[in-house]
């Protein structure tokens, strides 16, 4: 009897997406990507390849010039501002430029993502402490973000991105300022989130974090998708993900 193939639910669906910036800069051209729930995807490529532009489209910071962007089954171009707000509470973003508030403490910077969804103060305190401990920043909890080194600021940004336990995490160059040891801590944190069900898109040119990975890698170059290492992903290969123990083991 033929085994019934279950399609994993799709978290991100980009269909022929292009993004042009004035006057005529083509940041993304004809990109089609599908990312399933619980997947980790690496977006690689040189600086200016279009990685950040793609992440910006996924959180509706920008609209595509052409094509469709769907996140969790919702066409982002058709979402009301109220729905966008709700959706963003479920997306954790680690920005390349950190976007920390320099005159606030580390704890306050992390707490802000949980405050917007009205988490209890006790929960916020516990979660902040836990994340800082995982990222080796326990001693910096009351330090002003502006007084931290770039590497520390980067880790605070990552902590803030995952603090609200979002369904989708978008990380833009999350290890750009980190040494190999702290890179390991960050990747451990991402893996932990992924095991809890989060879909993660990591834009990076740090080869060390995806060199031996079992996850899908997509390479961009000058806005074009030049390589998609996705032949084994269930939606294309027909593997039933429910047979898998956890998403990390899916793939190579």
């Amino acid at each position: 009897m033929q085994q019934r193939i279950k399609k994993p639910k799709v978290m991100i669906d980009l269909i022929k997406v292009s993004k042009m910036y004035p006057p005529k800069v083509e940041a993304l051209a004809d990109i089609s990507i599908t990312v399933n729930k619980g997947e980790i995807l690496f977006l690689t490529g040189m600086s200016g390849a279009g990685k950040t532009s793609l992440l910006r489209l996924l959180c509706r910071r920008e609209k595509p010039t052409k094509g469709f962007v769907e996140v969790a089954g919702e066409d982002l171009s058709k979402l009301s501002s109220r729905k966008i707000q709700k959706m963003r509470q479920n997306i954790g973003i680690a920005h390349q430029d950190f976007k920390l508030l320099p005159n606030r403490t580390v704890a306050q910077n992390i707490a802000i993502s949980m405050e917007v969804s009205y988490k209890t103060p006790v929960h916020i305190r516990r979660r902040t402490k836990k994340l800082l401990s995982q990222l080796g920043l326990s001693n910096k909890i009351n330090t002003l973000a502006g007084e931290l080194s770039r590497g520390e600021q980067q880790r605070v940004t990552i902590a803030r991105a995952v603090a609200n336990e979002p369904e989708l995490i978008l990380a833009d160059e999350p290890t750009g300022n980190l040494d190999s040891e702290t890179t390991g801590l960050v990747m451990d944190l991402f893996n932990e989130c992924n095991q809890k069900g989060a879909t993660i898109v990591i834009a990076t040119h740090d080869e060390s974090i995806y060199k031996n990975t079992s996850h899908r890698i997509i390479e961009l170059s000058q806005g074009y998708m030049v390589k998609s290492d996705d032949a084994v992903w269930p939606i294309l290969s027909g593997i039933d993900p429910s047979q898998e123990e956890h998403p990390e083991s899916i793939g190579h």
């Binding site: 501002s81 508030l101 917007v116």
Partner: peptide, 16 residues
């Protein structure tokens, strides 16, 4: 200004 921009990105509601 910076904080408000961040709040928007974090999905803070209009009421918030």
């Amino acid at each position: 200004k910076k904080e408000l921009e961040l709040l928007r990105l974090l999905g803070a509601s209009s009421t918030y």
